[in-house]
Amino acid sequence: MILAVWAAGLGAAAQYGKISVIFGRMGELYPQAGTALSFSVSLVGMLGILLGAVAGPYAAAFGYRRTLVWALGAGAAVSALQALHLPFGLFLATRVAEGLSHLGIVVAGPVLIAQLSSDRGRGLAMTLWSTFFAVAFTVLAWFGLPLVRAWGLLALFAAHAAVMAGLAVLLGLALRAVPVPPRAPLPRLAELPGLHLPIYRSPWIAAPAAGWLFYTCCFVAVLTVIPPYIADDARGLVLGMMPLASIAVSMTLGVFLLRFLPGVRLAQLGFLACAAAALWLWAMPGAPLACIAMAGAMGLVQGGSFAAVPQLNETAVARAQASGAMAQMGNLGNTIGTPLMVLSLSAAGFGGMMAALLVLFLSGAAVHLLLAARRRGMA
């Protein structure tokens, strides 16, 4: 059951990845779009930035099983529409709608996984969930791109629709017998702005999201701006190895260390290891081992961050709020990370970009230190 919910996470990550992996060819579908094509990637995150933190209470009111199944069904319907080669304006509208489906999955999924797993296995289960983005991008590169070469760009949207629909049916049936927390009252629309304050004032609920902001500022940005500095003959291998290193480290070393360290400490350790790798890469620009080491260290951050959600929050409602805040901060980090790196690069060269990266990694470790001190003071 945990693997089935994790597969739903892969479908959610593919809502980003299905455009990212074919972005260089999107002009074939919409030749008149020009630079507006970039919105086909970023618009999915719009609702996550606006509504991520308040999605938790709505998922708690609607029911976590129902939220996950309906989000998968809606995602399938949107992908099926996209496979019809809509006009560009309508296509962008479907990408905004797809953001709501994405938000439902990434909020309800980790709550259900925490509910399904035992206390002893919860660290492993949450670490598995944390890999969904990296695994989805790898699967799309291995299977999605050959599908596109054989059947065209629209075939990828159709395949995604079929997978999401199959998961909706599978989980709709399989989750019926799974006990889930009782539903919470439905928040009123007028209460939405006020829902953010208690979430971000809580050093328990907000802690995973606070670190996640700095992680997501770096992950996509590193994969975007570092490649030109890697030697041509090694670039493809290194770029393929980086997400795999992140997955491998989180599922092996990360799971092992979670037996002895709480998730927050593991995330801090990962941030410090990332900072060390950044110094290595600063000294040796484009060094393949430094790039892979940085990606591996990021795996510790992602595993520790998701493991911290159930460790710091005992109730399902609090866990949903923490997952929603992570979705909000993750979308914000993905949005601002790459422009920030590009700005640093243009202003101060490679050294300026690496300095910005170093500051972000150290800030991720520091924010966890500050919030841990607040939790001790409020305990």
Rank of each mutant, 00 (worst) to 15 (best):
L3F: 14
A4N: 09
A7L: 14
A12F: 03
G17P: 02
K18E: 03
R25T: 11
M26D: 06
F39Y: 15
S42C: 08
G45R: 04
G52A: 02
A59N: 08
R65A: 03
T67A: 04
L86M: 10
F91S: 05
T94L: 07
E98G: 08
H102P: 04
V106C: 03
A108M: 04
Q115N: 15
D119K: 14
R120L: 13
W129Q: 12
A136S: 15
R149K: 15
W151L: 14
G152Y: 05
F157R: 00
A162Q: 10
V163M: 12
L170W: 15
L170H: 12
L171V: 06
G172V: 09
L175M: 08
V180S: 06
V180Y: 09
P181M: 08
A184N: 11
A184L: 12
R188Q: 11
L192Y: 11
R201Y: 03
P203H: 02
W204M: 12
A210L: 10
G211T: 00
Y215W: 10
T224E: 14
I226Q: 06
P228Y: 11
M241R: 07
A245M: 07
S246K: 07
S250T: 11
G254R: 00
L257Y: 04
L258D: 02
R259P: 11
P262I: 00
V264Q: 13
R265P: 09
L266D: 06
G270Q: 05
A277N: 00
L279F: 12
W282Y: 12
P285G: 04
G286Y: 04
L289S: 11
A293L: 14
A293S: 10
M294F: 15
M294I: 09
G296N: 05
M298K: 05
M298C: 09
G304F: 01
N313K: 08
E314N: 11
A316D: 06
G324Y: 00
A325T: 09
T335C: 06
T338N: 04
L345M: 01
L345W: 01
S346D: 12
S346Q: 14
A347E: 12
A348G: 14
G351C: 05
A355S: 13
S363T: 12
A373H: 12
A373Y: 05
R375V: 12
